[in-house]
């Protein structure tokens, strides 16, 4: 049953889950951070408030953060399924989720400054489509808030100021510098989705796609796994801490992917995700049956 109504219904539930329930691996990472901070510190108080907030969101089916972000959506679909139909279904779902206060009306007309009021607008939600050989469709999304989007950045190597060349050591340097720059903007502790290579468009897309990964997974490419581990450790040594109050928990995760690049270009693109690292994933069979993925 591949109908727009069925898809809209599933996507609405998907948006509700994403906005109100923080994934288990993210909650576990926040808890680990909380236990590392000094008792009674502002850092620990902030993480306690965050954990209390996460519980409230889940219990009351209300948004964890009032900035419910831009839904960024990746769809895998079999041959012959209309991507326009899937897109319409998602737009309808975002409108319904906005009407029910799972999402904030988050689309503002750039010239008039007027909020569309319905949560959708030109380019919102943002959708990527990819055809595959499986019979089901699979949809994965993140809700990317504005504060953390403002803290995202793209860099080109080499960078003389940081002594950063066109290699993984150069990547480490620009990323740690960017993390220092992001304080006070994205809500720490955050997760970094990083793309090395690509162009200015594909780099951002891939860096956001990295945010679909689980925090506790291991990068299959050993040199990237080592770099993720190193940036995670050193990022937490910077002492920025939860909310920038100072402390040991500045990062919850680092996820790095690569794309091939032009010989002349070496971009490092960083998508900063705040502690409210909201994502959801679902598979829908040909008959309309739903399997929720983590």
């Amino acid at each position: 049953m591949r109908s727009q109504e069925r898809y809209s219904e599933v996507f609405l539930e998907m948006l509700r889950r994403a906005a109100t329930q923080l994934p288990d691996d993210v909650v576990a990472a926040i808890r680990r951070g909380r236990d590392r901070e000094e008792d009674g510190s502002l850092a620990q108080k902030a993480l306690d408030t965050i954990l209390m907030n996460v519980d409230l969101g889940r219990e009351q089916s209300s948004p964890i953060c009032q900035d419910t972000g831009t839904p960024v959506v990746w769809v895998h679909h079999p041959i012959g399924v209309s991507t326009r139909m899937i897109e319409k279904s998602m737009i309808e779902a975002v409108r319904q989720a906005t009407a029910r206060q799972y999402l904030r009306p988050n689309a503002v007309h750039t010239l008039s400054g007027k909020n569309t009021g319905v949560g959708t607008g030109a380019g919102i939600p943002f959708m990527h489509f990819e055809e595959w050989d499986e019979p089901e469709i699979e949809v994965r999304l993140i809700l990317k808030g504005g504060g953390s989007e403002n803290a995202s950045s793209q860099h080109k190597l080499p960078d003389n100021r940081l002594g950063a060349g066109r290699d993984l050591e150069g990547v480490r340097r620009v990323v740690l510098d960017a993390l220092v720059q992001a304080q006070g903007k994205g809500c720490a502790p955050g997760t970094l989705g990083i793309c090395i290579g690509g162009d200015r468009v594909s780099g951002y897309e891939e860096s956001k796609r990295q945010l679909l990964r689980h925090l506790d997974d291991t990068n299959p490419i050993p040199e990237l796994a080592r770099l993720e581990e190193q940036i995670f450790r050193e990022g937490n040594e910077l002492g920025i801490g939860p909310m920038g109050f100072g402390g040991k928990t500045t990062l919850l995760g680092v996820k790095i992917g690569t794309l091939d690049r032009l010989p002349a270009c070496y971009f490092v693109t960083i998508s900063y995700m705040c502690w409210a690292d909201r994502r959801a994933a679902v598979r829908i069979s040909e008959g309309g049956d739903v399997t929720w993925l983590s």
Binding site: G57, S62, P63, Q66, G145, G147, W275
Partner: peptide
């Protein structure tokens, strides 16, 4: 400073 993202606790 309120805790960023703590929209439920604050609401």
């Amino acid at each position: 400073h309120a805790v960023g993202g703590a929209a439920q606790v604050l609401a």
